[in-house]
């Protein structure tokens, strides 16, 4: 049971959140300009590192807001929590 520190509500159990996968994957500005391969990368390919990983969570049963978490995918330790508008911490992917 992870303990995630919602930037707006404070620390809450994992069960209050939903997972949103890798953070910082922007929707392409003009999808039509992409090749099929590039579009496939956007659709389906995500980083899957063993170690620090910048990921998205949403506080679904709380404030319903999205935020980013840098978490180690092996130790499950939360290394940083930051708002979507904050810069990505060093060392994450």
């Amino acid at each position: 049971m992870l303990l995630l520190d919602c930037p707006w509500c404070g620390p809450r159990d994992e069960t209050e959140y939903h997972y949103g996968g890798q953070a910082h994957v922007r929707y392409p500005q003009v999808p039509a300009d992409l090749t099929d391969q590039e579009w496939a990368e956007y659709l389906f390919f995500r980083d899957n590192p063993e170690g620090p990983f910048a990921e998205r969570w949403v506080h679904s049963t709380g404030c319903r807001r999205w935020f980013n978490v840098m978490r180690d995918t092996t130790s499950y330790r939360v290394l940083a929590v930051y708002r979507p508008t904050d810069p990505r911490p060093e060392g994450s992917r």
């Binding site: 949103g20 922007r26 929707y27 949403v58 319903r64 807001r65 999205w66 979507p84």
Partner: peptide, 13 residues
Amino acid sequence: LDWLEEWLQTEWP
């Protein structure tokens, strides 16, 4: 609703 919120908050704030 989750889907709309996700796009609003993470792509088009």
